[in-house]
């Protein structure tokens, strides 16, 4: 059941659960797990984005003629500042897209959950609990 309760045992419930309702409940439960995962990814990518932004600022202050050790994969490569800057820009673009994409996904998931929630509460009232603890 995850972290929310379905069909509270204490509550009397005379409304029959149809297959259609069951599918809605399943979908909601699924989305509930999904939205947590998305939030987690989102947080990680956002931190990464902040790191890259700091990095872009810091490298501005760096002596242009002094090459930097830039991390690529497992090792470091000696790079001209300009080359490193271009690479940071590219990485930033990639991560900006990812962050945006995750944000849209979270919003869409939440929208669908709100719809399902409304439908299920409408039918089952207090007999169902879809809130997070």
């Amino acid at each position: 059941m995850g972290n929310f309760g379905l069909l509270d045992k204490e509550e009397e419930n005379d409304v029959e659960v149809q297959w259609e309702d069951q599918q809605k409940i399943n979908r909601f439960s699924r989305l509930n797990v999904l939205v947590d995962q998305l939030e987690e990814h989102y947080k990680k990518q956002k931190t990464e984005k902040e790191y890259l932004e700091d990095l872009a600022m810091e490298i501005e202050l760096h002596d242009e003629d002094e090459p930097v050790m830039y991390r690529v994969g497992q090792g470091f490569m000696l790079l001209e500042v300009e080359d490193a800057q271009q690479r940071i820009e590219k990485q930033k673009e990639g991560i900006d897209n990812k962050v945006e994409e995750l944000k849209t996904q979270i919003e869409e998931t939440e929208k669908e959950m709100a719809k399902l929630k409304a439908a299920l509460y409408n039918k089952f009232g207090k007999a169902i609990n879809l809130e997070k603890d």
Partner: peptide, 17 residues
């Protein structure tokens, strides 16, 4: 699997009710 677990849990609750 989540779907199946949810279905089973709802089944159980309904039979109990």
């Amino acid at each position: 699997l989540r779907d199946q677990i949810t279905t089973m849990e709802v089944n159980t609750a309904r039979i109990y009710n």
